[in-house]
Computed example of a mutant assay.
Amino acid sequence: MTACSNPVNDVTKTEVTEKEPVQISEKVEELQATVKDSSTSSFVPASAPVNPLKISIPSINVEAEIHPYGMDDTGRMAVPEDPEEVGWYKYGTTPGSAGNAVLAGHVDSKVGPAVFFYLKDLKTGDKIHITNANGEELVFEVKDSQKYLPEDAPMNEIFGPTETKSLNLITCTGYFDRSVGHYEERLVVFTELISEI
């Protein structure tokens, strides 16, 4: 998966393991327990959350299906094998509910750019449109984007509880380390809900 700080124009030269998890830490289960424990958090989930089905990001020409994913055998967030599909962390917050909902996708594949290839180009104020299973459209606005080494990522800010209705998008970035078969950093784009249609 390609870098935001070192864009790769000839992505076909980069060998990528498409099954590589984009998860930035192995502490998701611990954070998920915090999210679901109302006695230790002010987080209040929506009364009837509805699964997300599609994502549209007009500013970078993204139109993709969203499918729910849990964790892989290593305890990391699983992601789609299909490079054009986006994964929603189903054990976390549903987009549109109070909390940090998380979507992950590949940045490239062995054959070229993937669904989140241009995620690095998003700017503050850009809009993310999510369509759910009820046909409702949720519009989120980009607030910030940050790159992290996996061991330095602020897991609570990405996956943990919050009173805002947030949606965080994750992909890989930075240098591709061929010796281990994955990118050194993760890009996280932080967004907040601004309207429901």
Rank of each mutant, 00 (worst) to 15 (best):
T74M: 04
S25G: 13
G75P: 09
G75F: 11
V50A: 03
P83F: 00
E84I: 03
T93G: 05
I57T: 00
E81K: 14
M71F: 10
E29Y: 02
D73G: 09
T12L: 10
A98F: 00
I55T: 04
A78Q: 06
D37V: 00
I55Q: 03
A33V: 03
W88V: 10
N51T: 14
S42F: 02
Y91Q: 10
V28L: 02
K19N: 14
W88D: 04
P83G: 06
S39F: 13
T12S: 15
V50I: 11
T74I: 07
V11P: 01
P58H: 07
A64S: 12
E15G: 01
T17F: 15
V50Q: 11
A64V: 04
P21E: 02
V35A: 02
Y91L: 05
G92Q: 10
S97L: 07
P68F: 12
A64H: 02
K27N: 14
P83C: 07
V16F: 02
T12K: 13
H67T: 12
D73H: 12
K13C: 07
K90L: 04
E26D: 07
S41I: 10
L31E: 04
P80I: 14
A98N: 10
E29R: 13
T74H: 13
V44G: 01
I24W: 10
E29I: 13
D72H: 12
G92R: 06
A48L: 12
G92N: 09
G70C: 10
S41A: 07
E29H: 00
P68T: 03
T12M: 04
P49M: 06
M71S: 04
E20R: 08
R76N: 15
A33D: 01
A48P: 02
N61G: 01
A46V: 10
W88T: 01
V79W: 02
M77R: 01
S38R: 12
T74G: 15
D37W: 01
G70Y: 08
V50S: 09
R76I: 13
L53F: 05
T17S: 07
K90Y: 12
V62M: 00
D82F: 03
G70P: 08
P58R: 11
E30W: 11
T93M: 00
S56G: 04
E84N: 15
Q23C: 15
